[in-house]
Amino acid sequence: MAKRVEAANVTAYYGGFKAIENINLTVEPKTVTALIGPSGCGKSTFLRSINRMHEVLPGARVEGNLTIDGQDIYDRDVDVTAVRRMIGMVFQRPNPFPTMSIFENVVAGLRLNGVRRKSILEESAEKALRSANLWDEVKDRLGKPGAGLSGGQQQRLCIARTIAVEPQVVLMDEPCSALDPISTLAIEDLMFQLKDKFTIIIVTHNMQQAARVSDRTAFFSIEKTGDPGRLIEYDNTQKIFSNPAQKKTEDYITGRFG
């Protein structure tokens, strides 16, 4: 289920603006990797390049090499929708489909994959909701609108929607930044469970969160506004937070950034 993600010399542009430059890193299967760094350093851009969501924006493009278990996802012959099915994504703000019920939200991805059998959909929905620690809270109101849930529940609903299609890799772009501490904790617990099955890459501004949930941490930074973001240091989380090799990393995690 889980796969290795390798980035080699990944550079991404927004039109003429170079957002990240020469990112090289390897993410091992069944681990949680945190991407940290100041705002605008390109960590979200890098994350969005991994499932080819970056190119959705007009004028945006990616150069370099990104492979999943050795397979180039930017290969000309690769179907972009297949890449996105393999690499799921959870966004910063919970974004359940407002017109769909909780159940329909969870199975939206399966329906896109052509699954029609009601029994399969129900089974997968329950499994995904259980994995997202949401089942007990919503099992009696699966027909109600997904947007009627609380923010934390909505985000777990989005996680359920993402893992229902059984991706190999799950990308999370600041999944807790719009949530209260209790919901945040629920999602962090969830990440621990999910890494048994998935490779997880998470962007976060919360360094305690990075320290708590991740096995490895990548620190991104920029020299100054307008410069492309670069990967400064990538190591075991424990090492990054206790004894970073780079001065810049240390300054950032101890709050002396800038």
């Binding site: 499932n51 969501m53 959705v56 929708t81 297949a82 890449v83 996105r84 099915r85 799921g88 994504m89 966004f91 703000r93 974004n95 359940p96 489909f97 407002p98 939206a108 991805g109 896109l112 994959n113 989005c158 929607r161 993402t162 299609v165």
Partner: peptide
Amino acid sequence: PTANEEAALALGATRWEMIRT
């Protein structure tokens, strides 16, 4: 909302599937 369009695309929807979803 762009967030909903991106949600559909990130699930592996084609352009038309995104519009439908």
